[in-house]
Amino acid sequence: MAVDMSMPILIVDDYKTMLRIIRNLLKQLGFENVEDATDGSSALQKLRERQFGLVISDWNMEPMTGLQLLREVRADAKLAAVPFIMITAESKTENVVAAKEAGVNNYIVKPFNAATLKTKLTSVLGNF
């Protein structure tokens, strides 16, 4: 099934610079419908207000981290099926294992490039 390039994507990061970078990279990959949030709590609120096709989230944020956001999403029956990609500088094995156990679909380590982002998006959403 073809990927819906107009699906809304929620990007979450407490660094506004990072949000700009991800938004521009997604735009160049063909995804223009991008919303953002600067922490887990506001992201969760947006997810409950509107249907998103994908969440791309940082880990290290306050007051709610990306891992907590992921757990909340997976625990909510209405949101549980939303694909979730973690983009983070946390690269220890135990981090990846914790994210996987919490139900992450893929994991990108910062710094990353457009090719890595495209590969991970394809892995989660299918070819586009």
Binding site: T17, M18, P111
Partner: peptide
């Protein structure tokens, strides 16, 4: 070239952390 600039700008987040 613009994409390369976006990719390279990742450094700021890492440096900050």
């Amino acid at each position: 070239l613009a994409m390369s600039i976006f990719e390279a700008s990742n450094f700021q987040d890492i440096t900050g952390q």
